[in-house]
Amino acid sequence: MNRRSLLAPFAASALLLALCGTASAADSPALKTCMDGANTTAAMVNCNATETKVQDERLNKAYKTALAAQEGKRKQQLQDVQRLWIKYRDANCVFAGSATGGTIDQVNGSGCLLDMTRTRAQELENLVGP
């Protein structure tokens, strides 16, 4: 087996992490603490899932605030965009979570979901300002 074929799975993982981002524990002390103590794939996925719930609550609050700030056609546009974004996020993270066939896929997929949810919450918060 040549060196190139040995590195292919690692290159695929690195590419996926670059494409969908990685959950930054620096953004959340609770996530950092959880990840520091996570010794298994399941524990890491659980850490990501717990923080995703926090970010999903943030996203929902930001969406309601942003939606209330819109008028007329823009309100419907935001609803449509949000529905499409949810479909895209879910499909993108399923893809990110199936790259290698290994257990790291579970961590990559859950990290993708966390990152995309956190980013979208920030985008919605930015629609209405500080």
Rank of each mutant, 00 (worst) to 15 (best):
Q76I: 13
R74P: 07
T52Y: 04
A69E: 13
K32Y: 01
G111E: 08
E125Y: 02
S13K: 03
P130H: 14
L67V: 06
L31I: 07
L17S: 12
L15W: 11
V54Y: 01
S13G: 09
L16R: 06
D36Y: 10
K64C: 07
A49T: 07
L6A: 14
A43I: 08
Q122P: 04
A62E: 11
E123H: 15
P130F: 08
G72T: 04
T50C: 03
A11V: 15
K75A: 06
A23F: 03
G109Q: 00
L124Y: 15
G129D: 00
E51Y: 05
P130C: 11
P29S: 13
M116V: 11
R58L: 15
T41N: 10
T52H: 01
R4M: 06
N60F: 10
A30I: 04
F10C: 14
L7V: 08
R74H: 13
L16V: 12
K75W: 06
L124Q: 02
V128D: 12
K64G: 12
T33C: 04
D80H: 03
G109A: 00
S28H: 07
A49L: 07
R58Y: 03
L127P: 12
A99F: 02
N60W: 09
D105I: 05
D56P: 06
N2C: 09
D90P: 04
F10R: 13
N2A: 06
L127T: 14
P29E: 13
R74S: 15
D105P: 05
D115L: 09
D105L: 02
N60R: 11
N2R: 05
V81M: 11
R3M: 12
A91H: 01
L59T: 06
R89K: 04
P29L: 05
D27H: 15
A99T: 00
K73W: 13
A18L: 03
A66P: 09
A62K: 13
Y88E: 01
K64F: 10
C112R: 01
N46I: 10
S110Y: 01
E57M: 02
L59W: 03
D115W: 11
N46T: 13
Q106M: 10
A23I: 01
V81A: 15
N2K: 04
L114N: 10
Q77T: 07
A8I: 08
Q79D: 07
S5N: 12
T33P: 00
A62I: 13
A12S: 14
Q106K: 05
Y63W: 14
